[in-house]
Design a protein around this nucleic acid. Structure first.
Lengths: 135, 135
DNA sequence: CCTAGGGTCTATAGTCACTATAGGGTCAAG
DNA sequence: CTTGACCCTATAGTGACTATAGACCCTAGG
């Protein structure tokens, strides 16, 4: 039993991932199926730890699992140009920036709506509901 | 056949909602089941149009269907104080603001990462992948 | 040796807000 | 009377998990 032999719970703790999520990643092919112990427990090595850490880091950066799948694939093609990696990142950044803009417009409108509430009114003359009613 | 008798497609066009979405709203009880025509077609009146417009407006404002369900319920209790409406709006606004902050931190980091790419490198010395690899 | 607990296993269903598909029925125009 | 647009139901799929049920494994204490 080498020091890098990890049970699924160890891997979960080491990466801040839930056990069920790790099994889920395996099921969808993002993590390879690991070796099994005598009692049929999953047994992970250092490479699996690294791979999962990479996945989690990318998730924290907001990449989708499909994008991560692509990044993992690309990262194994060591000789290839990294233009595609750049492209995936740029596309994702643009998407995040668009979401920020959308949410900011939303927050502005919500603040505008919320400010109309005098506090202590009743439903029938509620300015918030009024602002939510079109026409 | 009154002028306010709408088929599901008419209602869809009038509110910018997809037909399937309207049926979905009915299934989850957000819209009441409407009357049916001789040929078993759904037949909507002006009240349904108003209700769906309200729902869509709230969806555009980013409220969840559960929040909208609550708002619809509250909006029928005309004599009650509107404090709860205010509360739902405030909670939602806070959530949107938190999301904006999260995404901004994300965008900053992605820009930082993206800026490291010299362009024209290969995978093996890709600074983007490097930045995504923890440790 | 037994038992209690904690961890692990599989498989299945649920979440949210739709979206897609299959396989039909209805209706007005040409 | 056929074409084509619209409508119907029911079911399954999406993304990224989360939750549950019911069983198995493993270790420590008595």
């Amino acid at each position: 039993m080498k020091s890098e032999d990890l049970k699924i719970g160890d891997l979960a703790r080491a990466t801040g991932t839930k056990v069920v999520t790790i099994r889920y990643y395996e099921k969808i092919g993002l993590l390879p199926a690991p070796a099994r112990s005598a009692g049929n427990y999953r047994s992970y090595d250092g490479a699996a730890l690294q791979r999962l850490r990479f996945i989690r880091r990318c998730r924290d950066l907001g990449f989708s699992l499909e994008q991560i799948r692509e990044l993992l694939l690309l990262s194994s093609e060591t000789g290839q140009p990294c233009a595609e990696v750049d492209e995936i990142t740029a596309v994702h950044l643009a998407e995040v920036e668009r979401k920020i803009a959308d949410l900011q417009a939303l927050a502005d409108e919500l603040r505008r709506i919320s400010a109309r509430c005098s506090g202590g009114g009743t439903i029938s003359n509620c300015r918030i509901l009024e602002a939510m009613t079109p026409g």
